[in-house]
C-alpha cells in the first residue's frame, strides 16, 4: 500500500514537471514549484515512515522549510519587485517542447531500468521518474529565455536530484544534503542580485541580450 502511494506521488511529480514545462505565466510557475516541493516532502515522509530511516525526516523538514516556504517567498518577492508577471517567452513553441518531453521520458525510463534492477529499495520503480524529472527541468532551462524561469528550472532540477537520491539509496548523507540546501539558497540569493543587475544594464530580463558583446 505504501509502495503504491509512493508510486502515485512519483507520478504526480512527473505530472508537475510537465505542467511546469507547459506553463506560460511566471507566478503559476512558482506556485507549481511550491506544489512540487510539497509533493516531495510528502513522498519523503512516506518513505521515512515505511523504511524507518530517521534521517529522512530531517531532510523532509529541510525540504518543507526551504522549498515550500523560503524559496517561493523569495521568488514571489523578486517577481513583485522586478515587475515581471507577464507571459514567459519560450524559444521553442510549447507543443514541440512537450513532444521532446515525451522522448526524454522514454529515454530516461529505459536508462533507469538497469539501475532499478540493482537497487534494493522499495522505491526502485520510481528512479526512472526521478531521472525524467531532472531531464525535464533541464529542458525547461534550455527552452526558456527569461532569467527567472531558468532559475525555477534550476531549482526544480535540484528537486528532481533530491527525489532521485531518496528513491535509489534513501537519501544522501545529512552533511551533503545540508550543503546542497545551503548552496541552493545562496545560489538563489546571488541570482536575485544578478537579476537586478541584468535588468539595470539591459532593461530586460531576456538573456539573449547577454550574448551580444559589450563595446
Amino acid at each position: 500500500m505504501a509502495g503504491q502511494f509512493i508510486n502515485l506521488l512519483a507520478s504526480i511529480l512527473l505530472l508537475l514537471a510537465f505542467a511546469m514545462l507547459s506553463q506560460r505565466r511566471i507566478k503559476l510557475l512558482v506556485s507549481l514549484f511550491m506544489i512540487q516541493g510539497l509533493t516531495l516532502f510528502t513522498n519523503t515522509i512516506v518513505i521515512a515512515s515505511t523504511t524507518g530511516q530517521a534521517h529522512l525526516y530531517y531532510s523532509a523538514l529541510l525540504t518543507l522549510s526551504l522549498k515550500v516556504v523560503i524559496l517561493p517567498w523569495i521568488l514571489f518577492r523578486m517577481i513583485r519587485q522586478l515587475n515581471v508577471e507577464w507571459d514567459v517567452e519560450t524559444l521553442i513553441n510549447i507543443p514541440s517542447t512537450m513532444l521532446a518531453g515525451i522522448a526524454i521520458v522514454i529515454v530516461s525510463f529505459n536508462l533507469a531500468l538497469p539501475i532499478s534492477h540493482l537497487a534494493g529499495t522499495i522505491t526502485r520503480g520510481t528512479i526512472g521518474i526521478a531521472m525524467a524529472c531532472v531531464l525535464l527541468s533541464l529542458l525547461m532551462m534550455i527552452t526558456r529565455s527569461k532569467a527567472i524561469s531558468q532559475v525555477i528550472g534550476f531549482l526544480s532540477m535540484e528537486n528532481g536530484l533530491f527525489f532521485a537520491a531518496t528513491s535509489t539509496t534513501y537519501g544522501m548523507p545529512m552533511v551533503v544534503e545540508l550543503g546542497v540546501a545551503l548552496d541552493v539558497l545562496v545560489g538563489v540569493l546571488i541570482l536575485g542580485v544578478f537579476f537586478f543587475q541584468i535588468r539595470e544594464k539591459f532593461e530586460s530580463l531576456d538573456l539573449k541580450h547577454l550574448e551580444k558583446k559589450e563595446e
Binding site: L14, I106, F109, T126, I129
Partner: peptide
C-alpha cells in the same frame, strides 16, 4: 505518459 508509467511501475 499514462501508458509509459504503467510499463515503468
Amino acid at each position: 505518459l499514462g501508458m509509459l508509467v504503467h510499463f515503468l511501475l
